[in-house]
Amino acid sequence: MNDDERNDKLIAAASKLSTEIVPERDLWPGIAESIAQPRRPGWMPMFAQAAVVVLLIGASSGLTYFATKSQQQPIQEITPELLFERASFGGRYSLGMDYQEAHSDLAAQMEDELVRLSPEIRADVEKNLTIIRTAIRDINTALQNEPESALLQELLLSAYREELSLMQRVGGLAQHVMSRKDI
């Protein structure tokens, strides 16, 4: 028997396998319980939007405070790979200018700190940043289609937080490495 004949026989046999298999237990009660909850009520997105606006104002103010308080490093030119996705919030929302400026400052500061880290750590940081920014871009794209989605809004806000947190941690990590005297 050659390979073709064997393959034909395999596919022919596979097509005879059962396509319908009866579950060993009734799965409907679990489904019924889940779908018994009302479909997404209309007031939820509005509530979520209001909560998001409040959070954004807080985040924006906090960042502005952080950016203006921290000692400014000379801002270096940002390399193309570190250019950031324009901070947005789906098709309907935009983060304020304060946030944009603070974000840019933090990014430039992080770039300055990054060069002091080992190539391995730098690669890890850039890899993580890429993942977070890809997520931000994808969630923004999804929000274009589902601007009312509270889940997407929450995810986006969380992703922005993750990005900022990582940038802040990178700055702290580099400063810590440079200031150690016990090595």
Binding site: T19, E20, V22, L27
Partner: peptide
């Protein structure tokens, strides 16, 4: 449809 979905 459950048998076909579960089978898959």
């Amino acid at each position: 449809h459950v048998d076909r979905v579960y089978g898959l």
